[in-house]
Design a protein around this nucleic acid. Structure first.
Lengths: 419, 419
DNA sequence: CATGTTTGTTAGTAAACCTTACGAACAAAC
DNA sequence: GTTTGTTCGTAAGGTTTACTAACAAACATG
C-alpha cells in the first residue's frame, strides 16, 4: 500500500465487513422508516479549487511568519520550525530574497560544531506601512510605521466638519503627505474608518462623514499606487490588540468615543458580520429599566450610557454642585453605573462566544477605574461562574494609536500573511 | 515575466520608484519619532506547512461536494463547475469510484449534440450514518440516516438516571444496536452530547450525566470501529439547521429543553469558543429587575425564565385558577414575558455578531407563538433598526430530530468535506 | 590531525495539475 | 447517406512543488 493510499483510507474508514450479517438479526427497536425530506446541501462548504501553487504561497508566508515572529535565524532553523525541508526552505528564501523581503545578515558567530549558519531575517527596514485613523470626529490621524509596528512619523488633518468628497480629499492628502515622508518603499496603506465597511474596502455607510457606498480602497489605491486595506475602526483596533498579545484567540474590543463600537476576534479570525456590521453594539438597549434618551430615538442604548460626550457631560453636571467629598463620590457613582451597563450588554456576548478577554479603548481617565471595575464585577455576576472565572477586562496597551496600528496590521497580514 | 512571477508581484506590490525623492521635501507635519515597543507577532497567523497533496485532498472534496449538492452529472459538468479541468476531474473521480464513494449511472439520454455524457453521482445508498442525541434527560435517541439526512431507522434507550460508566454503556449499546440494523457500511457515528465538549471529542464536563474529561469519541470508536464525531448538542443542532438552509452563514440556534443552550455558526463556521463553551447562554442574567431564582444560585438567568420545566410549571400554576378567558390571557402573558427575556439576552449577541437569523428548537407549543413573537419584537426594539430590519426568528424545521441530524452532518462534513 | 556535526546546495524522484491532442459518439444539415 | 460541428473522456507530455539522498564546506572536539 502506497503512502497516498494510506492517506485515503484513513479519510474514509469503512470496515470491510461492515455490511455483513445484518438482515438476520431482529433487534427490539421501535422502527420508523418515515424519511424526512432532506439533503445536507451546505454541510460540505463550497470552496474554490486549490492548486499546488497555493501550497507554495502558504509555505512562503509560513517562512515569512516564522522569521517575523522569531527573528533572525538560519535556513536550517526555519526548516526545523516549519517542518519543511532545508531544501524547500532554501528555495523559498531565495524567492523572498529576490523580492527584497528577506535579507542575509552574515554568519552566526557560534560555539557550535558544524558549518556556521548564514543568518537570514525579514528585511525589517526595507518596507514601511501607512496607517490611517478616521474614527475621530475632529481630526484624521495617520502615521508611517515600520514592519514592527513602531510609529516613525505622524501627520494629521483637521476635519472641520468636512463630509463627502471634501472628506475624501482630506484622507487622500493625508496619505500622500505620509507617503512623501516615508523613508522606505511602502508595503501598503491601512485605513480604519467609522461606519460599515465591506470586505472589498467599500464604505457602505458612514453617516458622520456623509459616505454611502464609497469605494475608499479604490480611491486611495489610485492616489497612492500601493495595496490598500480598509476596515471599520473598531475592527481594525481589535486587530492591533490581537496581533500584539500572545494567548487569546477570542477577544472583543470596545471602543468608546463619540459613539460606542466593538471589534471581535473569534477563533483567531476577525469577525465581519453577514451585513458587514459586526460589532455594532452602540445602539443595543441595556437593561429593563429605561435609561437616557439616545439620538437614535430609543432609550437606554449603550451609547447613551457610555459615549464619551454623554459621560463627560454627566460628570461635569454632577461635580459642579457638591463639595469635594461628595464630588468624588458622585463621579464614582456615575462611572460605576456606566461600567455596570457595559457589563450588562457584554454578558450575553461573552457567554455566547465564550470570550476570555475584553479590551477597552478610549479615554483612560473615564474607562480605567471604577467603570472598568464595575464592568468586570457585573460581568462575573451575570455569567456562568466556572466558565468565566478567568475573564479579564483591561485597557488597550496601544492608547490613541490603536486604530492606526490596527490598520497597519491589516496591511502586514494582508500582504505577507498566511491566508 | 513568467506566470509565477506575475503572481508573486501581485502579492507584494511595490512601485519601483516608491522610495525616490523623499528626503528633499520638508512637509509641514507634526513629526514625532517616538516609537512604541511593538511587534505584530500574531498578525501573521501561525499554521502548519501545506503540501500539494493537501490541494489534492481539497479538490477531491470539492468534487464530492459538487456531486452531493447538485446531483448526478457528467465529469465534464463537474469540471465546468469546479474550475478544474476535465482531465483532473476524471482522475479524481477514478479515485472516488475506486473507494466506492462515487458510482457511474450510465449515459445521459440527451437531445444534445456530441458524445453522450456518462453520468456520475455520489453513491448515495452505499453508506449510512449513525446520529445520536444525548440531550434529553430521560432518553438517549439515535438513528441510522442515509447520506441525504433521511432517517432510516430509529432506536432509543431509557436513561433512567444512569450516569458515569452506566450512561456510557447505554450510549455504546445504542450505537451497536443501530450499527446492527444499518443496511450499508457506516460512514461514521455522530454524537450530540450535553455539556462542554472539546474539539477532540472529549466531554470536558457534563454534570447531568456525571461525565468529566470523558473521551467519548475514543470509547465509541473502540466499540463501533468507524470514525466518530462528538460535539455539544446545541452546536450539533445548529449544524443541521445550517446544512439544510441556503443563504445565511450567520445563525444562532437556541435550544430550549431542561436547560437553555445555543449553537452558533459565524461566517459559515461553527463557533467553538476558547474554552469549548460557546453558546452557553443559559446562565446569563436577563435584565435589571431581578427574576426567578435559578439552580445556579443567581436570579433571573435565562434558563430560569425559559427552561421547559420552569415554563410548564408556571403555565400550569397560572391556568389552574382562573376561567377560560383569563386562562388564555395568563398563558399569553407568561409566554410573551419569556419571549421578551429571550429577546433581551439575544439583542447584544445579534448586534455584536450581526446575525440575521435566530432559530428556536424545543417544544413548539411553548416556543412557536406568543413567545416567538415577543422575542422578535423585543429584538427589533432593542437593536439598531436599519441593520436588523430583516432579522428573522423561526422554529427549526427539523423538530425533535435536530440534534441527531446535526450529528449526522458532523460525520458527513468530517468524512467527505472540504477542510 | 582525525572525527563527528551542521549547513546549504545539487541531483533526482514522486505527486499534482495543467495544456494539447485525439478517438468516440452524437445531432443537424446537406 | 455523408459531412460538419460539438461534446465527452482519455492519453501524452510538460511544469510546479516538495521530497529524499548525497555531498562539499566549515567548524568543534578529542
Amino acid at each position: 500500500m502506497t503512502t497516498a493510499d494510506q492517506q485515503r483510507s484513513t479519510l474514509i474508514e469503512v470496515p470491510a465487513d461492515a455490511a455483513a450479517g445484518r438482515a438476520a438479526q431482529a433487534p427490539q427497536l421501535r422502527l420508523d422508516t418515515t424519511s424526512v425530506a432532506a439533503g445536507f446541501g451546505r454541510a460540505l462548504r463550497p470552496t474554490g479549487k486549490r492548486l499546488p501553487e497555493h501550497a507554495r504561497h502558504h509555505n512562503r508566508a509560513l517562512v515569512l511568519q516564522t522569521l517575523y515572529t522569531a527573528g533572525a535565524r538560519s535556513r536550517a532553523d526555519v526548516a526545523r520550525e516549519t517542518g519543511l525541508t532545508r531544501v524547500t526552505v532554501s528555495d523559498l528564501v531565495a524567492d523572498l530574497i529576490g523580492e527584497g523581503l528577506v535579507v542575509e545578515l552574515g554568519q552566526r558567530e557560534s560555539a557550535r560544531p558544524g558549518k556556521p549558519a548564514t543568518l537570514i531575517d525579514i528585511a525589517r527596514d526595507a518596507f514601511q506601512i501607512i496607517g490611517v485613523d478616521l474614527s475621530d470626529a475632529s481630526v484624521f490621524r495617520g502615521a508611517v510605521l515600520d514592519l514592527e509596528g513602531a510609529v516613525l512619523e505622524r501627520a494629521e488633518v483637521q476635519v472641520a466638519g468636512a463630509t463627502g468628497e471634501e472628506a475624501i480629499a482630506l484622507v487622500i492628502a493625508l496619505v500622500e503627505r505620509l507617503a512623501s515622508v516615508a523613508s522606505a518603499p511602502l508595503l501598503g496603506v491601512g485605513v480604519g474608518s467609522p461606519g460599515v465597511v465591506d470586505d472589498s474596502g467599500v464604505v457602505r455607510r458612514a453617516p458622520n462623514l456623509g459616505w454611502t457606498d464609497l469605494d475608499l480602497r479604490a480611491r486611495i489605491r489610485a492616489a497612492a499606487g500601493v495595496p490598500v486595506h480598509v476596515a471599520n475602526d473598531a475592527n481594525a483596533a481589535v486587530l492591533a490588540e490581537h496581533a500584539t498579545r500572545d494567548g487569546d484567540d477570542d477577544v472583543i474590543l470596545v471602543k468608546v468615543g463619540r459613539g460606542v463600537g466593538a471589534g471581535l476576534i473569534v477563533g483567531g479570525r476577525p469577525l465581519i458580520g453577514g451585513a458587514y456590521a459586526a460589532g455594532e453594539i452602540g445602539h443595543v438597549v441595556v437593561g429593563t429599566d429605561g435609561g437616557p434618551a439616545c439620538a437614535c430615538g430609543k432609550h437606554g442604548c449603550l451609547e447613551a450610557w457610555l459615549a464619551e460626550p454623554r459621560l463627560s457631560a454627566e460628570l461635569a453636571a454632577a461635580t459642579a454642585v457638591a463639595g469635594d467629598d461628595s464630588r468624588a463620590a458622585a463621579r464614582d457613582t456615575i462611572l460605576r453605573e456606566a461600567g455596570r451597563r457595559l457589563g450588562i450588554v457584554l454578558a450575553p456576548v461573552v457567554g455566547a462566544l465564550n470570550l476570555a478577554e475584553v479590551v477597552l479603548s478610549g479615554p483612560a481617565e473615564l474607562l480605567d477605574g471604577p467603570l472598568r471595575e464595575a464592568a468586570v464585577e457585573t460581568l462575573r455576576n451575570r455569567t456562568m461562574a466556572d466558565v468565566n472565572r478567568d475573564l479579564r477586562i483591561r485597557m488597550t496597551t496601544h492608547g490613541q494609536d490603536i486604530v492606526l496600528r490596527g490598520a497597519a496590521v491589516m496591511v502586514l497580514s494582508g500582504q505577507l500573511g498566511v491566508s
